[in-house]
Structure formats: C-alpha cells, structure tokens
Amino acid sequence: MLGKNLMSCSFLLTFLTLVDPLANVAPNGQATQSSLYANNVHAVNVINGDMTGLCSHTANQSSPWWKLDLLAVHRVLAVTIFNRPDCCPERLIGAEILIGNSPSTEKALAAPLVMEILSTLTHTFHCGDMEGRYVVVILPGQKRILSLCEVEVYASLAGVLMQNVALSRTADQSSSHPDGPARNAVDGNRDPNFAKGSCSLTHQESNPWWRVDLQNVYTVTAVMITNRNEFENRLDGAEIWIGNSLEDNGAKKSRCAIISHIPKGRTFYFPCSSTEGRYVTVFLPGTKKILSLCDVQVFPLDYADGTYI
C-alpha cells in the first residue's frame, strides 16, 4: 500500500480568476512500477506521448503499482489515464490514483476512481488543485495485473499565468431564455446560482448549442466549464468542439471532450490536445434538451511561438 501522506485524486476543481497554464508535466518525470512482466513493457512507456505504442505491464502480484516522480512538488489539477484498447480493460476496476510528497508505498487508503474508464478507455480525473511530487496508480488486491497505456498529469507551473481568451468575447446560442443570454457564460463570473444572473440558458429544444467567437485563431490547450447549482445533470453528454468555421454552428471541426458529468456548482477542466480554432462550441445532442452554462473559459498557447500567452 502507499504512504499516509498520499491523497486520493477527487472530482473537484479550484476556482481561479487566472489559472496557471496546465501543461502535461508527466513526460518530464521519472516512472517506475512494482514489477515488470516483460522486457518491453516498462513504466516509462506510459509517459512517452505515444498512445499507439507499447504500454506498461506488471507481473501478476499483490497490489501492483505504477509511480511517477515529477521531480518537484506540483499543484495537480487533473490526471488523464488511457486504458488498454486491445484487451482486458476490466483489469483497471478498483484502481486508485494517489498524489503526495512521499515515495513510500506503504499504508494508505483511497477511494477507487478508475471505474468510469472502462466505458471510454480514456478518462480525466479532476484533482482539486492537489499538491504533490508523486502520482501513483495502485491496484489493491491479490493476483492483480496493472497495465496502463498513457498517463497525463496536468499541473500548474509556478510563476506563469495564462489568459482566458473567452472573457467578454462575442457569444451566441441556439435560443435564449430572457434571463440567460449567451454572454453570461463569458462575463468572468463563475457564480453557479442562476438567479444571480450569470448563467446562460437556452429553451428546451433539439440539439441546443452555445458558441464563443475568440476573434482570433488560437491553439487551445484547455477549456474550463462551470455547471449550475440546479439541474446538474443537464450538461451530461454535452460535447466541446473547436474549429475555424461556422458550418454546423462552428462545432464539428475537432472535438475537445465529451462531458460525462460535472457536479452542481463545480468547474471542470478539459484538456484539448492543442486544438486550433477560432470558435469554441458546447453542443448538447438529443431531443428536449436545455443547455445552461455558468462560465466557459478557454486557455490557449500563443499561436506565433508555441508558448503560453
């Protein structure tokens, strides 16, 4: 088991007016694992950025683990795990993601957090601005095999801030409730209480959408969305799209993410793999749907030189 000062990665995200750039810092770290099944399935395979290459693979053992040393204490906002696409995705059932400052692998408990990955193969876990040097995936139990194909760790970089380029930009939506115009979602106010007047709201309709025009083409690395306090399940299944055309409401160019669920009043972070576009669209497929957003933030790299603006 793992050290007592390791904490379980949870599904909360700290609210910030400006946020540190959320780079994937995993490739800069050092990876190890509890055992090695074969010579070509090393722990480092999980942080090389190649989702189509070799995965990690432990031997069949008690409570196998994979550990990443970030080499310094980071504030971790999210961890993305890529499960095996070829076989055995159920092996990750009950796995735990832990973050802490001790390299020890003794005596710790955490809630299982990798259950949802079975349906999507890829899942991002939100870690509530948790601080730690070590990120550990552990699989408690007897006769278990731990295999991971990629782990991405999105953590803040001290001393550099990133601009929300959606703030006060022109926003539009498929229809508008009188008290929920599209601009409310880019006013810089994350208050999740609709009655306070800072959330967008469409009418009930088929396939409602919300869109912001960034007015320039950016390489988008992350989108952060704040859900309402009320009717928290309405965002379930919404899709985030990024593109340069208004065809299909500017949506269907590159899909950044599908929102499985954001708890009421919370802000979740969605990595976008450096997707280029001028328009960011939130699209809710289905009939008799209502789309409501309390805040949408878009964080890019600088288009000219590939650095954070």
Rank of each mutant, 00 (worst) to 15 (best):
W210M: 00
S56W: 03
A166P: 10
V135E: 12
H57Y: 07
Y37M: 02
V73L: 07
Y269R: 08
C55V: 12
L167T: 13
I47T: 12
V186Y: 00
D248R: 15
L16V: 14
S254W: 04
A43R: 01
W210T: 08
T52H: 12
E276V: 15
A257M: 04
C149L: 03
K67E: 06
C87E: 05
Y154Q: 03
R133D: 04
K253E: 15
V46Y: 09
Y308N: 10
T122A: 12
F299S: 14
V46R: 05
A238Y: 08
V25P: 00
F82R: 08
N5L: 08
C88K: 03
F194K: 09
A108H: 09
F283W: 10
D50Y: 00
V44P: 00
L54R: 15
T14W: 10
L54T: 11
P300K: 13
F125Q: 02
G53T: 01
G29Y: 11
E247S: 15
R169M: 14
V223R: 09
R228G: 14
D86L: 01
N24Q: 08
L118Q: 14
S176W: 05
K264V: 03
L36S: 08
A59M: 09
T275I: 09
Y218D: 11
T287G: 07
P112E: 08
D86Q: 08
W210L: 02
D179A: 15
P300S: 12
R75H: 05
N28Y: 02
T307M: 09
G188E: 11
N24K: 07
C272P: 03
Y134F: 15
K288C: 02
R266Y: 06
K289L: 05
A158Y: 13
Q142D: 14
M7K: 15
G188I: 03
E239M: 08
C294N: 06
D305A: 04
I242C: 08
R91D: 13
W209S: 02
C294A: 02
L139T: 01
T120N: 03
C199F: 11
I97S: 11
A171C: 06
M130K: 07
S206P: 14
R255I: 06
A222L: 15
R91H: 05
S156H: 13
N83W: 07
L71D: 06
P178Y: 03
E150R: 10
P85D: 00
K143P: 00
T17Q: 15
L293S: 05
N39R: 13
M1W: 03
T17I: 15
H74G: 01
P27V: 07
M224I: 11
I240A: 04
H261S: 15
L301E: 07
S62P: 00
N229H: 13
E150M: 11
L167P: 06
A257S: 11
L246V: 09
E96S: 03
K252L: 09
T170P: 05
S56Q: 00
Y269M: 09
C149W: 02
S34A: 02
E205Y: 06
H126R: 11
G128H: 14
C127P: 11
Y37R: 11
L22A: 12
V19G: 00
D187Y: 03
I145C: 02
S174K: 03
V220D: 10
S35W: 06
E276M: 14
A26M: 13
A222K: 10
G286M: 04
L113Y: 01
N60V: 10
C199M: 08
R144C: 03
A222D: 06
Q142F: 09
C272R: 00
G188A: 10
T221I: 10
P271M: 03
S104D: 13
C149R: 07
